[in-house]
C-alpha cells in the first residue's frame, strides 16, 4: 500500500512536498538560529554577570584576600550604606537627580513649545541645532564646560568680568563658602546634554495632540495659560513620564561629566563614581558590586513610581 502510494506520487507533488517540508523547517528552526547570537551575547555578557553580581553581593570577595569567600547576607549592603563616603556620594546624587529632573522638565517643555510654534520651514534646521548637544559624548561635554568654568580663562568669568559684575576671577569649584555650587554647575553641563532628548520627545508628544481640541477650547473662551495647563500638560503625560524616567536614569547614573570636571572630589562625586572607586581603586569588588546594585535599585524604584503615577494612556 505504501509503495503503491509513493509510486503514484507524481514528481510535481514530490517537489511540492519537499518545498513544504523546507518551508516548515524554515519556519520552525530559523527563529532559534536567528536569535542565538543575541541570546549568547546577552546571556554571557549581561545575564551571567548580573546573576554573579547578585550572588557576590551577599558574599565577601576581596582581591587582596582571595581565600576569604563566605556568605554574609546583607552585610555588604549595610557596610556600603553606613560608609560615610558612600553617604556623601548618595547625597550628591540626590542633588543631581532633583536639579536635573526640574531642569529637564522646564527647559524641555520650553524648547519643545518653541520648536512646535516655529514656522514649518525653520523647524528642521533648529531641530538639528537643538539635538546637537545630545550627540556630544559625555566626556567631551565635561571638557567643553570645563573651559567655561575655567578659573583663569573661562567663558563664565570672562563674561561676568566684561559686564563688570565681578572684578576678580571666581574659582567656581572648591569654593568653601558655596559647597553645593559644584553640584549645580555639573548639573548644568548634564542638562545641556540631556535636555535635547527631552525636547524631541515633547515635540513628538505635542505633535500628536489634535489641533481641533485647542480650537474647540478657544471657542469656549479658554486663555493660553489654561489651554496649556488643562489640555497640553495632561495630554503630554505619556511623554512627561518617558522624559522623567530618562532624566532619572541619566542623573542618578551620572559619571562622565563628574569624572572630567571634578574627578573624585567628595563635594561633587556621584554614587557611580563611588562605585568605581570601591571596585577599581580600593579593589574591593564586593563593595563595588553592592554599591552598583543599590544605585540600580534606586533607579528602578524611581522609574516604577514615575510610570505608575505620571503615565496615562491617552486616546482621542
Amino acid at each position: 500500500m505504501k509503495t503503491l502510494l509513493s509510486s503514484s506520487t507524481t514528481s510535481r507533488q514530490r517537489t511540492q512536498k519537499k518545498q513544504r517540508a523546507h518551508y516548515m523547517l524554515t519556519m520552525h528552526l530559523m527563529p532559534y538560529l536567528l536569535v542565538l547570537p543575541a541570546i549568547l551575547f546577552i546571556g554571557v555578557l549581561v545575564i551571567y554577570p548580573l546573576l554573579f553580581s547578585i550572588f557576590s553581593s551577599v558574599h565577601v570577595d576581596d582581591l587582596l584576600y582571595p581565600a576569604l569567600h563566605k556568605f554574609v547576607g546583607v552585610q555588604n549592603y549595610i557596610n556600603v550604606l553606613s560608609d560615610p563616603s558612600f553617604q556623601i556620594a548618595a547625597r550628591n546624587t540626590v542633588f543631581y537627580f532633583i536639579f536635573t529632573s526640574l531642569g529637564v522638565f522646564l527647559f524641555g517643555i520650553v524648547i519643545a513649545l518653541w520648536l512646535h510654534n516655529l514656522p514649518h520651514k525653520w523647524r528642521g534646521v533648529f531641530l538639528t541645532v537643538v539635538i546637537l548637544p545630545w550627540a556630544v559624548p559625555g566626556v567631551v561635554t565635561g571638557l567643553l564646560w570645563s573651559f567655561i568654568y575655567n578659573p583663569t580663562s573661562g567663558l563664565l568669568d570672562g563674561l561676568l568680568k566684561s559686564l563688570h559684575i565681578i572684578s576678580q576671577n571666581i574659582i567656581w569649584f572648591n569654593d568653601p563658602k558655596l559647597p553645593n555650587l559644584g553640584l549645580f554647575l555639573i548639573t548644568l553641563a548634564l542638562l545641556w546634554q540631556v535636555v535635547p532628548l527631552a525636547a524631541i520627545i515633547f515635540v513628538a508628544g505635542l505633535e500628536s495632540i489634535p489641533t481641533t481640541i485647542y480650537e474647540a477650547a478657544r471657542v469656549d473662551g479658554c486663555h493660553s495659560w489654561h489651554l496649556f495647563s488643562h489640555i497640553t500638560l495632561p495630554l503630554l503625560r505619556p511623554s512627561i513620564a518617558i522624559v522623567m524616567v530618562q532624566a532619572a536614569v541619566l542623573s542618578i547614573g551620572i559619571f562622565d561629566q563628574v569624572y572630567v570636571l571634578t574627578g573624585y572630589d567628595p563635594n561633587t562625586k556621584s554614587a557611580v563614581i563611588q562605585t568605581y572607586l570601591y571596585a577599581f581603586q580600593n579593589l574591593n569588588f564586593g563593595q563595588g558590586i553592592s554599591a552598583a546594585l543599590l544605585v540600580t535599585l534606586s533607579i528602578s524604584v524611581v522609574g516604577y513610581i514615575y510610570l505608575r503615577f505620571i503615565y496615562r494612556e491617552v486616546s482621542y
Binding site: 520552525h28 541570546i39 546577552i42 554573579f52 557576590s56 559619571f255 571596585a279 540600580t296
Partner: peptide
C-alpha cells in the same frame, strides 16, 4: 511566534534599562 519567543524577547529587552555600571565589576572579572 515560536516557543519561548516572549520570554527571550523580555529577557533581551529587559536589559535595556540595566545600566552598564550595575554589572561592570563581574564583567571585568570575566
Amino acid at each position: 511566534k515560536f516557543k519561548g519567543s516572549r520570554l527571550l524577547f523580555l529577557v533581551i529587552i529587559g536589559t535595556i534599562s540595566l545600566p552598564v555600571y550595575a554589572i561592570i565589576v563581574p564583567l571585568f572579572q570575566l
